[in-house]
């Protein structure tokens, strides 16, 4: 388990009161305490203006060429495949560009088209619906699973089992669920027919397409997020719970007052990851519905793909990508502000 406890996370998360802090500190094993101290020292040394007592100025000067050498691949990769395409993407979104001919500047024509493109707004709606379903149910199921697992068993085999879907590709997940949800031969529909008398066109009806896709996505990612939360649970010292129990706290109280607040940084991260991933959903849509029926599951990424690679309207596709980018930045910033508020809460 040493693997799972990098130094910076063993720093005991303590409530504000001094007494509880003392409890938490004594709870840390000698090794974790040592690690935490080591971290503390290295943080000091690594800080921007921090003094590095063991490092002479000469040593620093020697570091620079080596450092530059070591970061060359990363800087190149960043410049060529992140920074440049970002700028180019912004430029392309103001052009008319059909790949074979060079882009020609059209100003805000694409933006105007976007504002009046009903399909785009519909796509946005559909995508947000997918994101909301994935975030709400995905996070909820992951949280409950992690907490239940953490309370009843230490079996890493069981944790492994729930992680299995994470390891297979979206394509395979989509294929097997499409087969299981098949209107006539799918096992889920046969079971439904026996229970309720009628089957559901999961991918064939407008109302069910997005929930079905969200369910596949949740199935695939639930184990991963549950394990993230599980790891967070492991960093909470058990003494905190023991203290609460001595004080007569109930299970529900402990969950609400201890587990959830102490987990908030991890929960925020899980939500941020889910939002970012869900906004960009593509694979499972492309394999199953291809945006149909009648655009019911035409998520943004799918629409962008269609525009760019079937209609070769790269300029407009770039504009939509830019819109999605701006949207993601806005959402992520909001969430990160939440996360930062948390940090000050806990430390």
């Amino acid at each position: 388990m040493v693997v799972t406890s990098p130094g910076n996370h063993t720093t005991p998360v303590t409530p504000s009161s001094g007494a509880a802090g003392a409890v938490a500190t004594t709870a840390a094993s000698p090794r974790t305490t040592g690690r935490a101290l080591g971290l503390h020292a290295s943080r000091k040394a690594g800080g921007p203006k921090g003094s590095a007592p063991t490092r002479s100025v000469a040593a620093r000067r020697k570091d620079l060429p080596v450092a530059l050498l070591l970061i060359i691949p990363s800087v190149l990769g960043f410049a060529i495949f992140y920074a440049y395409p970002t700028l180019r993407g912004i430029y392309l979104s103001f052009t008319d560009f059909h790949v074979l001919t060079p882009p020609s500047w059209v100003g805000t024509a694409n933006l105007n088209e976007l504002l009046h493109d009903d399909v785009f707004w519909h796509s946005l709606q559909v995508t947000v619906y997918f994101v909301v379903l994935s975030v709400v149910f995905g996070t909820l199921v992951s949280l409950v699973t992690a907490v239940v697992l953490h309370r009843v068993t230490r079996s890493s085999a069981l944790r492994g089992v729930i992680l299995l879907p994470f390891l297979i590709s979206n394509v395979i997940a989509a294929l097997v669920w499409q087969w299981m949800l098949d209107p006539t031969l799918g096992i889920v529909n046969i079971a439904l027919k026996n229970l309720t008398g009628h089957s559901i066109l999961f991918f064939g009806s407008g109302g069910w397409a997005i929930p079905s896709l969200a369910a596949i996505s949740i199935w695939k990612w639930m184990g991963y997020y549950a394990l993230l939360i599980f790891a967070g649970l492991q960093t909470i010292p058990s003494t905190i719970y023991e203290a609460a129990r001595v004080d007569g706290a109930s299970e529900v109280q402990m969950f609400r007052r201890l587990t959830v607040p102490l987990l908030r940084p991890i929960l925020v991260m899980v939500v941020v990851l889910t939002v970012i991933n869900s906004f960009q959903v593509f694979d499972i849509v492309q394999v199953t519905t291809r945006g149909g029926p009648a655009n019911a599951s035409n998520v943004l990424q799918m629409y962008i793909y269609e525009k760019a690679f079937n209609e070769f309207d790269f300029g407009y596709a770039a504009t939509m990508s830019l819109a999605l980018f701006v949207l993601l930045i806005a959402v992520t910033f909001t969430q990160l502000r939440l996360a930062r508020a948390n940090e000050s809460d806990l430390n």
Binding site: R88, Q301, I329
Partner: peptide, 25 residues
């Protein structure tokens, strides 16, 4: 730290956005 922060800003750029320009490139 400045260089690191610049590089790590790539976390913010969704794959969606760099996809088309990268494809063209």
């Amino acid at each position: 730290n400045l260089v690191f922060n610049i590089l790590i800003s790539a976390l913010m750029v969704p794959g969606v956005f760099t996809l088309l320009p990268n494809f063209v490139f």
